[in-house]
Design a protein around this nucleic acid. Structure first.
Lengths: 335, 335
DNA sequence: CGCTGGGCTTGCAACGTTGCAAGTGATGCT
DNA sequence: AGCATCACTTGCAACGTTGCAAGCCCAGCG
């Protein structure tokens, strides 16, 4: 069905090469010829065959974005930004979900036959750790997103999790809260996010001279609403429950919020709440959610730019870039 | 860097064709040869070049999912389902966002050079109407999602919007609500969703003998939280405000909920609320949201299956499939 | 011992595109 | 008139893969 260069050439009475020159806007084509070829192109509705092009010039024009879950708002918003950035550079993004499954992550990132299709990868690991990533056999360039799993050796866009968690916790301290809990700690070695945020949380408490109560640090398996709701139930069941909670992401906070409200308590009057990620849901909850806002556009921009540099043969040392963040104060911490 | 068939062949002392036979598990290869080739494959870490393969057999293995916004939860959840279904069939999904911009929709779906890259499209139109879609010049098969924009002639997966809206409204009637409002009407010809849901809403009111008050039907430009919040403000400002609201999607309902609560009113005591889509946010809001739940997995399954059939040369008449839905009753309508 | 057949392997060509270098014809200069 | 120059156009080859049909070699049979 689709017309080829050769067919257009025949119709216009020129060579395929000349048609190619017209299609690609090469200067060395006589105006008259160009017009004639253009007409043939239009008549046949010619569309360049992307696959053949890609084979010819050795690139597929495709980059893969590999992340845990697409329907988690933070990732959905990040994905939007990555797609936009990549499109601006003429690249197309394929999104792959791993559900945090190490087998799927390995398959997609390490050597999966899928990999041969992509010029590069942007990878937000959940289960895969340093050991895995270090001996990747595939030569496709990767940029990592998220906390630092690998010490050097790979391009990486991250946020200062410790600093951000400190900022969030200090905000609660400044509100004169005495029993500040944390939801989202993770002991699992491969999941650094939780560990780093706990580090920041503790550091803030310590420098404010607060008591450190291990029972106020609640681990969760995932970062979903359900985990936040369950952890909050546990906290409320304590003999001496918290008057403030720092949740390691907004979904946890929204789950916790639901539990608090259904216990007849008020936010922030009884319990103040801070989240992380600044997803849209938190801007419209009641009360709206105070949160750490990472600059998602900047993350996407850096990631795509870094990857494109590698594709252009940039051989410089692996980069580690930190994205900006700030604290957005909303109703959940404002009396 | 990546090894080619020829290189493997040289190393194993056979022809490229034989290596290809091994890679593709063809039966006609002597065990000894197979073993030797396999070893060479392993040693070189051979990965088939997807682009060359695709050129050879005329398919790219790529389907595009074109939708308005990826970071709207309904679409994110739908996208997850489509990716899973497509992956099961060996296809890779490229997600494209149009932001409801008719120019971008046209570019992507009608003839954009992007289109030549995809074997097929799954398209959820927002701005493009029947007139546009009917004279598509591209020969790439399309399956449409959403309300029926085109009368026949194209494959289509839809929900019975009128029936679902009737069900939602009847639920509010059964609660003895007297002044039932609707948020999300759309006059724009190309956006049928709003119109159809209004139709169902009105039909339910009519058959229950309820008064029809035009001032209780609020149009919105988009289906975002902000639109719901604004429309709800207007409704509350009426001399005779509603005691129940049917919102045409969950985001509108969450926005409306926020407005209601911030006015010191209670849900469902003062105002009962029903949404549409069953996004996860609505399951964790306070109160949780009664909503129409379309079977997203089924939608994705039908869409992918229908598209794959077309790719396999199925020439049967265009199909119009309706996905199932049901009413999920939660706190926003339970006293 | 020669011929047939089957098991296994191979070379060629093509998918649609573009880089390269060579080709064409007309123009201008000496 | 002859030659260099220029503007434009072309054919060839190759990207890595696989369908096709032909080829090779050995076993088995007459």
């Amino acid at each position: 069905m689709a017309a080829t260069l050769r067919e257009v050439a025949e119709r216009a009475g020129v060579s395929a090469r000349t048609v190619s020159n017209v299609v690609n806007d090469f200067p060395q084509v006589a105006p008259a010829t160009r017009a004639r070829v253009q007409q043939a192109l239009d008549e046949l509705g010619y569309q360049p065959n992307a696959v053949a092009r890609n084979l010819r010039n050795g690139r597929s024009g495709l980059i893969a974005l590999v992340l845990p879950e697409l329907d988690v708002p933070y990732f959905a918003e990040l994905t939007r930004a990555v797609i936009e950035q990549a499109a601006a550079a003429g690249y197309t993004v394929v999104v792959d979900q791993t559900d945090g499954d190490p087998v799927r992550e390995r398959e997609l990132v390490m050597r999966g036959n899928r990999a041969a299709m992509f010029d590069g990868l942007i990878f937000n690991p959940l289960a895969l750790g340093s050991a895995d990533l270090r001996n990747r056999s595939s030569s496709t360039p990767v940029v990592l997103l998220g906390e630092r799993v690998v010490q050097g050796g790979l391009d990486h866009i991250m946020i200062d999790n410790v600093g951000a968690a400190e900022l969030a916790t200090r905000h609660l301290i400044d509100l004169d809260r005495q029993r500040i809990a944390a939801i989202g700690d993770q002991s699992d070695e491969s999941r650094q996010t939780g560990r780093l945020r706990t580090e920041g949380y503790q550091s803030a408490l310590r420098s404010a001279g607060h008591e450190m109560r291990p029972d106020l640090i609640r681990p969760t398996e995932f970062f979903h609403r359900a985990d936040g709701a369950a952890a909050m139930s546990d906290l409320l069941a304590l003999p001496d429950p918290p008057d403030a909670v720092f949740c390691y992401n907004d979904l946890l906070a929204l789950g916790a919020l639901r539990t608090i409200l259904s216990h007849g308590l008020r936010v922030p009057d009884d319990i103040a709440l801070v989240g992380f990620d600044d997803i849209e849901d938190g801007r419209y909850s009641t009360p709206s959610l105070t949160t750490i806002r990472p600059d998602k556009t900047q993350i996407a921009k850096h990631a795509v730019q870094l990857l494109l540099n590698r594709l252009d043969g940039d051989k410089s040392a692996p980069a580690e870039l930190s994205a900006d963040y700030d604290l957005v104060i909303r109703e959940s911490t404002t009396l």
